[in-house]
Amino acid sequence: MTSIIPASAHGAPGGGAAVAPRVRGGAPWSAFLLRRLGGVAVLVAVLVLMTFLIVRLVPGDPARNLVGLTASTEQLQAVRSQLGLEDSLGQQLVNYVGNLVSGGLGDSFVTSQPVSRLLGERLPVTAELAGLALAIVIVVGFPAGMGMAAWQHKRRVRWGDSAFTTVTSLGGAMPEYVTGTVLIYLFALKFDLLPAQGGAAPSEIILPALSVAFAPMAIFARLVRNETSAVLGKEYITTAVSKRLPSWRLYLTHVLPNVVTSTLTLGGLLLVALLGGTVITENVFNVPGIGTAVVNAILQSDYPVIQGIILVLGLLAIAITFAVDIVLGLVDPRTVSAVRSQ
């Protein structure tokens, strides 16, 4: 073999096969967004179909269930047309979707008020409660888990690890209604520090938010601890350690982004599950949110209200999932470019 390659040949582009440079903001991001938005559209469509089917799937005649056996045929007929049960199923769906698009969710059977007004009053309360709970979960759970992992990484203390595991297991097993009951007893009845009645006011929201956040906080802290330990064992951390960076820099620039990635991937479901906890907790503290409203509506067979609230809860869940995806895309470049290879 005699040929000598001149050094200048070195930078020449390879056979079209070398990895092409990609920079954020280019095609991968729009492809990524498009794909995620497509997913959201499907989810919303299925959700709408699901809420639509609630009324149609009720065994027997929903109108009869509503008006009772003693009602006259005219009353029954009126309710039927109000429910739109006269038309064919396809036509009913079209009407339902049409109403939704124009913002109409129907009127409550019980109060005859528009469902949209009910939601307008109650959704902000629920959103505030869920948002505060989410904030507590992250603000407490993340540093606790990460700090624990960092401490254990630096000096292994056996009791520290088992204590953390025990505490988070116990905490994670506390249902929000038990936590709520305990909190009411302690803070409202025994020491009379905060009201037992929930609401939108700052003093009224603390106990409900703590109830919702308590168990997820423990589970989240444990998750973050595990993920941080895993990241600290990775080879790129050894690389970073070889640079002898100050601790804060090491954790902030090398550990944190990767922990956020893996935590979000696994913890997305946990955030969505907060919604369920909110619904239950509202009933413990009698918070005037959509959680109490939906339970009343179910007990009173108030279908338009049920449909409206389930729709809203579903949309919230979809929004959270979407937000998690976007954050993942921002933090972890591989998520975005993975779309291309799929």
Binding site: I4, I5, A9, A12, G14, G15, A17, A18, V19
Partner: peptide, 23 residues
């Protein structure tokens, strides 16, 4: 002796045209 990195990382599902080794 020569270091040629041009074809390294070529995609097996999408090889260069002609002789795949030409780069």
């Amino acid at each position: 002796a020569p270091e040629i990195t041009g074809g390294e990382g070529a995609d097996p599902a999408n090889p260069p045209a002609g002789c795949a080794f030409h780069p």
